[in-house]
Amino acid sequence: MQLNLRPARALAALSATALLGATFAACGSEDDGKAGKEKTTAAACEPATPALPAAAPVAAFDPASKTRSFEADNGTVEIPTDPQRIVATGYAVPVLLEADADVVGISEWGRGTALMTDEDLADYQALKKVAGETAASTDYEAIANLKPDLIMLGVPLPVLGDVDLKRLESIAPVVVLGPDRPDGWKNLSARQADAAGVVDYYEAAKASYDAKAAALTEKYAKVLGEHCFGHVGAYGDVSAGNFNREYAGAWGTNIATDVGATYYGGPVEPGKGSAAFSEYPSIEELPQSLADADVITYTVDDEGKPSESVQYVLDHDLWKTLPAVRDGAVIPLRYTEAATYPTAERALDEIDRAFAEAFADELK
């Protein structure tokens, strides 16, 4: 391995709550919990995280009809066959902007602006904002004034209690399409594109991403299979003296796994939502948590700088005792919060650059 730790200054800790709430609803099984308590060795480097469910097929409908039945997280909803005035919030925002859907209003999506194209960023800035960074900030009057024919809430169901759904339904049909797990964006964008009538965008975007991921999987096939990966996520709490350990399927890992990186193990006590994919051990548990990782990746922001919580780990004396750190096998990853296929392609480019440098000797 050739990679050395990158110097970085401490930044404000990243919020663990994504736009309009990032409380995920996936559940770990009792067997997952037992598996997490067993020591995983590098010789048996396997993720404990369940695979992403297959995407639901796009609903068939009659193009001549003015409405169709759509299965959303909030039940079966009659929506326009060809919506012309869409209000989108949360995870629906970047998908519909990229797809050039007929959007008239959106919520804030500050976490994704650095990954937007110039054209999408211009559209994002120009569109009327009907909510801030939380579901509770929804401006119902602003939505009503836009006269939408479809309202798409890209929020997880646990956050839906912060929204007056009946009031929104009095304005226009409402479909709730939110993630139930960090890597859920991969299937979620298919449903969002379907509801907005822009399925062609999704199919092309997914095909492009899959092709790039497959090419990188082939490029690194002989290298990555030799290594067990661990990941330090961005959502630790310095004041609590803990760090964020992420496993397969989490924000920091879900794109790297698509090129063959294996993040072993799982939370000791898996819970609902993101707790099925990540945990917050005390910093004293760092050596035990990452002892079997011979490669460690960690999340950095769009400028390549660690958050305060990640920097806390990198600066700690216990960090220097880890085998991967002693070997220089530590890799920062950018764009880990990509939540659409085009932005995830940028994350793949970053992974390619980082892996090419880190595994240069092994690729010869």
Rank of each mutant, 00 (worst) to 15 (best):
A59P: 01
A59G: 12
A59S: 14
A60V: 12
A60Q: 12
F61V: 05
F61R: 12
D62E: 15
P63W: 15
A64R: 15
A64E: 15
S65W: 05
S65K: 15
K66T: 10
K66P: 00
T67W: 06
T67R: 13
T67K: 11
R68A: 03
S69W: 08
S69T: 15
F70I: 07
F70H: 10
F70A: 05
E71D: 13
E71S: 15
E71T: 14
E71C: 06
A72T: 07
A72Q: 10
D73W: 10
D73L: 07
N74R: 10
N74E: 11
N74K: 09
V77I: 14
V77Y: 06
E78N: 13
I79Q: 09
I79Y: 10
I79F: 12
P80I: 14
P80Y: 12
P80A: 15
T81E: 12
T81D: 08
D82H: 14
D82S: 09
P83H: 14
Q84F: 04
R85Q: 11
R85E: 09
I86F: 01
I86R: 08
V87T: 05
A88K: 12
T89R: 02
T89D: 04
T89G: 02
G90C: 02
G90F: 04
Y91M: 03
A92E: 08
A92Q: 12
V93I: 11
V93W: 07
V93C: 03
V93T: 06
P94Y: 14
P94T: 15
V95T: 15
L96M: 07
L96D: 02
L96G: 01
L97F: 01
L97D: 06
L97P: 02
L97N: 06
E98K: 07
E98V: 00
E98C: 03
E98I: 01
A99C: 08
A99S: 04
A99K: 10
A99Q: 05
D100F: 04
A101T: 14
A101L: 05
A101V: 09
D102I: 01
D102V: 03
V103T: 12
V103F: 03
V103H: 04
V103C: 04
V103Q: 05
V104Y: 06
V104T: 12
G105L: 07
G105H: 08
G105M: 07
I106S: 01
I106A: 00
S107N: 05
S107H: 03
E108V: 13
E108G: 02
W109K: 02
W109Y: 11
W109G: 00
W109H: 06
G110M: 05
R111P: 00
G112Q: 12
G112F: 00
T113W: 01
L115W: 04
L115P: 00
L115G: 03
M116N: 08
M116L: 15
M116K: 07
T117R: 06
T117I: 09
T117V: 06
D118H: 00
D118S: 02
E119R: 10
E119G: 01
D120V: 02
D120K: 04
L121C: 07
L121Y: 12
L121R: 09
A122Y: 02
A122Q: 07
A122P: 04
D123Y: 00
D123Q: 12
Y124I: 00
Q125K: 13
Q125R: 11
Q125M: 04
L127H: 07
L127R: 13
